[in-house]
């Protein structure tokens, strides 16, 4: 049983303003024009609550679109490598949905299980996830099809539920969350009733049977469904970059020969350049193969490798696709094949 508290909206905002004043980064949903994005806020008044799902996931707080791997200084006979400098302050991510928070559980396994990734580890250690369960959903939500629910707390440090009366129910999930709430205990009230949560959370219909899919998808590699479903795919990286669990990156140098840095940048298997050999040979030579790779990676490959399906059902790839590609339709076409 998780420890329960409540916090009202004014206190929550005072807490964020204090955290900001103390030099911490607070990442929260902010409206740009039509869409809501996670972004660094300078005041609690920047926070947008009117969103079902942010356009992009919160992964950039632990895996930014560009980050320095190391910097270097070079003289004739000597080379000095320097680790990037990480802030000793906490990054508080507020408002991630349960699907997003669950993605952190996957990211943790992916980046840290074998060959632990220094940069991810540093960022993950200093990130605190205050998630918000879903009171609303839309037609593209399918978390329940991949074993996550709109009320889920996994991956979160603190999980809030909007009780729609000016108060949030706070479930304290992790040790990190416990320490945080203890440090800022004056903002929270020592009361809370978990039964208040159940009638607030959205219903998300199950769109496919995951176990059946896992069986069916094995051996689907050569099926023509990939060719048919991928004809509309334009081969950009919007889906992968919006995705909470897409982790591929490119490595590039930015520098003069004497000093500079090696950085990594988000990359995606949707681009033909991703697999192109220097010889000109491309092992994944058409868009169908690239689309297939992304879908199989989510539902088959990471399941084989980590015993984890790496799609969290957030629906972002569907919403962001310029060509209305739809991963649910692809999955259903595999189920029906």
């Amino acid at each position: 049983m998780n420890e329960l508290k409540t916090i009202n909206k004014d206190k929550l905002h005072q807490l964020f303003d204090k955290l900001i004043a103390d030099g911490n980064d607070v990442i929260a949903p902010k409206r740009k024009s039509e869409k809501v994005f996670f972004g660094k806020i300078i005041s609690s008044s920047d926070i947008c609550y009117d969103y079902i799902q942010t356009a992009f996931s919160a992964k950039s707080s632990v895996f930014p679109k560009c980050e320095e791997l190391f910097s270097y200084e070079k003289n004739d006979n000597e080379i000095k490598h320097l680790d990037p400098v990480f802030s000793d302050k906490t990054t508080i991510v507020f408002g991630s949905r349960p699907c997003d928070s669950a993605s952190f559980d996957y990211l943790k396994v992916f980046f840290l299980k074998e060959n632990p990734d220094f940069h991810f580890a540093k960022r993950y250690d200093s990130t605190l996830l205050i998630s918000m369960t879903c009171n609303k959903s839309d037609e593209h939500c399918f978390c329940t099809s991949v074993g996550i629910s709109p009320s889920d707390t996994k991956g979160s440090d603190v999980s809030l539920t909007d009780l729609e009366n000016g108060e949030f129910l706070a479930e304290i999930i992790s040790d990190k969350g416990k320490k945080f709430v203890a440090d800022y205990s004056s903002f929270f009230e020592n009361k809370g009733d978990i039964s208040q949560k159940s009638n607030k959370n959205a219903k998300v219909d199950i769109k496919f049977d995951l176990d059946k899919l896992k069986t069916k998808i094995k051996g689907s590699f050569d099926w023509d469904t990939w060719d048919k479903q991928s004809l509309a795919c334009l081969g950009c990286g919007a889906c992968a970059f919006a995705c909470p669990t897409c982790t591929c990156f490119d490595i590039q140098d930015e520098a003069s020969p004497k000093s500079g840095s090696r950085i990594r940048i988000w990359d995606t298997c949707a681009l033909s350049l991703f697999t192109l050999h220097a010889s000109g040979h491309n092992p994944r030579e058409n868009q169908a193969g690239r689309w297939r790779n992304r879908v199989l990676h989510k539902f088959e490959y990471t399941d084989t490798k980590f015993d984890m399906v790496s799609c969290v059902g957030c629906g972002r790839c569907i919403k962001t696709c310029p060509a209305s590609m739809n991963i649910i339709n692809q999955v259903i076409s595999i189920m029906e094949a």
Binding site: N115, F249, F274, L276, H277
Partner: peptide, 24 residues
């Protein structure tokens, strides 16, 4: 095997052949 590679340690995703990482 030789596939395009970036990280060499099973992270960047470039060299994958199905679930198999050529690098790892």
């Amino acid at each position: 095997l030789e596939n395009r590679m970036k990280c060499g340690i099973g992270k960047c995703g470039h060299c994958t052949v199905g679930p198999y990482y050529v690098c790892k």
